[in-house]
Amino acid sequence: MKILVIDDDAAVRKFISMILQRKKHTVIEADNGKSGLLLLQENPDVSVMITDLIMPEKEGIETIIEVRQHYPSIKIVAISGGGKVSPENYLVIADALGANTTLKKPFSGQELMHAIENL
């Protein structure tokens, strides 16, 4: 399965990518929603997108809205550690806008794989 990981924190992207690659998934990475959407245009075979919600240039909420409009079949996992409000508030919004599942940071590799397997 090809999975797009979008997070502005390089360490988080690498952690997620490492877990997914161990399970033989193909992973592409972006550091914000804007570059993530460009990668989706170049990779029409992406089946899952994992996106952080609080990022520079284009936040995850905006990214989810655009993906739902242009790529409705992609499964979306929204992740957040929060910001000015608790991560749960952001994750509820992401869920309402079309995320298939959500994860609160920090999460374990096992929690990530469980979320992916349940999509």
Rank of each mutant, 00 (worst) to 15 (best):
M1K: 12
K2T: 06
K2C: 06
I3V: 01
I3G: 02
L4R: 02
V5Q: 04
I6S: 04
I6N: 08
D8H: 10
D9K: 11
A10L: 00
A11F: 04
A11N: 10
A11W: 06
V12T: 02
R13I: 00
K14W: 15
K14S: 02
F15V: 11
S17T: 03
I19H: 06
I19R: 00
I19M: 09
Q21D: 06
K24G: 12
K24W: 02
E29P: 05
D31Y: 07
D31I: 14
D31S: 13
N32P: 06
G33A: 07
G33E: 02
G33V: 03
K34R: 15
G36T: 10
L37V: 03
L39M: 13
L40R: 01
N43C: 04
V48E: 00
V48P: 08
V48T: 09
V48I: 06
M49Y: 00
T51C: 14
T51D: 08
I54E: 09
M55P: 08
M55Q: 05
P56T: 05
P56I: 00
E57H: 15
E57R: 15
K58V: 00
K58E: 07
E59I: 13
G60S: 05
I61H: 04
E62S: 15
E62G: 08
I65V: 01
E66M: 02
E66Q: 09
V67D: 10
H70E: 12
H70T: 12
I74V: 11
V77A: 06
A78D: 01
I79Q: 04
I79F: 12
G82S: 08
G82P: 02
K84I: 14
V85H: 11
P87V: 09
P87T: 07
E88N: 12
E88A: 10
N89M: 14
L91A: 11
L91D: 09
V92E: 10
I93K: 13
I93N: 04
D95I: 07
A96G: 13
A96S: 04
L97Q: 15
L97E: 14
A99G: 05
N100H: 15
T102R: 10
T102N: 07
T102D: 12
T102M: 13
L103C: 07
K104L: 11
F107D: 08
F107S: 07
F107G: 10
F107I: 03
L112M: 08
M113G: 05
M113S: 09
M113H: 10
I116N: 05
I116P: 06
N118K: 11
N118S: 13
N118H: 15
N118I: 04
